[in-house]
């Protein structure tokens, strides 16, 4: 039996810098998988490879048995790979609703000229998708921001909008790039709860990037640790926590006791 997402020995380098060096991962369906590593370890590059923004020079990627190699980013997204970005990449001049509706773009079927002429099919489709978007607005408590342009929203809300936009895609695989970076304690806890709810209610497979070890290991089922583009450990949170290579490479020897506690 093969895993839901298979990353097989991918390698990626930019002008001589090796961002990823033979990284392999296997993520099971429905899992909440953590990718951990210090800055510049290649975590975001890994996501960019999975979602097709970068093309790895070596190795193979497969989702549910389908090779992702030849696909372009929007085609991979069409397979149900959704993404939340590290520094939020929202559509700044659009409202929250419009941002969420863009997430449903690959589920739209009506033709361009039908949009142009506002034919009944387009009208019905807009209403149907709006209905589903409202469920997500409800789930993430975004009601009061519906018609607000996202550029004037506070950072914590923007993160939620971005999660909502990803959820609107009805994803099978959710890539979360540091969803709690820059959030305060309360917002971080909210975000953690949303992620656990997504896992419990929707059963979506999630891959979570974090550099804060404790937060992520409390949430995840399994995790892998990257350092300088290589995978140095993989396993359950308990295994990763005590792995000597992780302790040394990531936390530094001096503080190893603190991490283990």
């Amino acid at each position: 039996m093969t895993a839901f997402l298979e990353v097989d020995a991918i390698g990626l380098s930019f002008a001589g810098v090796r961002a990823l060096d033979g990284v392999s991962l296997a993520v099971e369906r429905g899992a909440l998988f953590a990718v951990i590593g210090p800055n510049g370890a290649g975590k975001t590059s890994l996501f960019n490879c999975i979602s097709g923004v970068y093309r790895p020079q070596a190795g193979r990627l497969a989702l549910d048995g389908r090779d992702l190699g030849p696909l372009r980013p929007h085609e991979i997204a069409g397979l149900g790979v959704a993404r939340m970005f590290q520094n939020t990449a929202l559509f700044e001049n659009m409202t929250v609703l419009d941002n969420l509706l863009v997430g449903r773009n690959h589920l739209y079927r009506s033709a361009f000229w039908s949009n142009l002429l506002w034919l009944p099919s387009t009208r019905r489709e807009e209403v149907a998708h709006r209905r589903r978007v409202e469920e997500i607005v409800d789930f993430l408590h975004l009601e009061r921001y519906r018609a607000t342009p996202v550029q004037i929203l506070p950072y914590g809300v923007r993160k939620r909008v971005e999660l909502g936009r990803a959820l609107c895609m009805e994803p099978r695989l959710l890539l979360l790039d540091e969803p709690t970076a820059g959030l305060n304690q309360e917002e971080t806890e909210d975000m953690a709860r949303y992620l656990l709810d997504i896992k419990a209610e929707l059963g979506t497979t999630q891959i979570l990037i974090e550099h804060e070890l404790r937060f992520v290991l409390d949430l995840a089922d399994r995790g892998a640790v990257l350092d300088f583009g290589r995978k140095i450990a993989e396993g359950t949170p308990d295994e990763v926590r005590v792995d000597p290579r992780v302790v040394e490479a990531y936390i530094g020897t001096a503080r190893a006791d603190e991490a283990a506690s």
Partner: peptide
């Protein structure tokens, strides 16, 4: 507004 992000969202 964000062409790369749009592509990653299926546009």
């Amino acid at each position: 507004d964000q062409d790369l992000a749009a592509a990653a969202l299926g546009v």
